[in-house]
Amino acid sequence: MKTSWDELAAIGRELTERRRQAEAAAAQRAAEEAARQREHDLFARTVGPVTPLPDTGLAELKRPRPAPIPRQRQRDEQQVLRSSLSDEFDPVTLMETDDRLSYHRVGVGPEVLKNLRQGKWTVQGQIDLHGLRRDAAREALSGFLAEAAKQGWRCVRVVHGKGLGSPGREPVLKGKVASWLAQRREVMAYTQARGPDGGAGALIVLLEGRVPRQRHLRRWLGEND
């Protein structure tokens, strides 16, 4: 079978293109090698004579690097949470209180506290601080309130324990929790839980809520009359 002139011309063009690509690749390798040699010479002139390490023949394994964890940012956030709640704060100076370990923020009517005491609000979330030390409890409470705001919860339970295991059987954490809650602007009221809900070892806390959407307004009002 004879080869036509067109086929021969196509073969010639392909061979020419392959030769051009090979020459370009060779020129690229030469340029890279020249650059490496210049860097080597510059290093040798700057550092001076060096003795290369012997080749051990060991393979260099590429181990997966651990994921970057912003530990400093985490420490900063934890410090902010701890410093946002003071142990020196006295809620009596800003809140209306009574002897049943309950309060309602200034401007919140007494009916709100009454409904809270009677369990008319559904508890949507809970945190148990019982057994935690002061700093750990404060940090956990701050994180829980932040999560409650994110979830849009209105009523939550905070379990602080009755303090029966504390020195002198004094409920230290109970008073701290009451003070910490009073410092949070999203806390509208709280009251000691009823017996089935934890009694003297827990508080029922009412939080500010987002304004409900118009299509849910009637149902929301009906649930909380």
Rank of each mutant, 00 (worst) to 15 (best):
R19N: 02
F43I: 04
E39V: 05
R20Q: 13
P52M: 09
E32L: 02
V50I: 06
E32T: 07
V50K: 05
A22R: 11
A35K: 09
L42V: 04
R29Y: 07
A35E: 05
A44S: 15
E32A: 08
A27H: 05
R18N: 15
A26V: 10
Q28H: 15
V47I: 15
H40I: 09
A30G: 12
R36A: 02
A44C: 07
R20L: 11
R38G: 02
V50R: 07
A44Q: 08
R38M: 12
A35Y: 01
E23M: 09
A44P: 03
R19I: 01
D41M: 08
A26K: 08
A27P: 02
A30D: 15
R19H: 00
A22V: 04
Q37R: 04
H40F: 13
R20I: 04
E32D: 13
V47H: 15
V47F: 15
H40Y: 04
D41S: 10
R45I: 12
A24P: 00
T51S: 09
P49C: 10
A30P: 08
D41Y: 13
Q37S: 05
A31F: 07
L42A: 13
E23C: 03
E32N: 03
E32K: 02
Q21S: 09
A44G: 05
F43P: 03
V50E: 02
R19W: 01
A26P: 00
H40A: 12
R29V: 03
L42F: 09
A44Y: 05
A30C: 14
A27M: 08
A31T: 02
E17P: 03
A31Y: 04
T46D: 14
A31I: 04
R20H: 14
R19S: 06
E32G: 05
R19Q: 04
G48N: 01
D41T: 07
R18P: 10
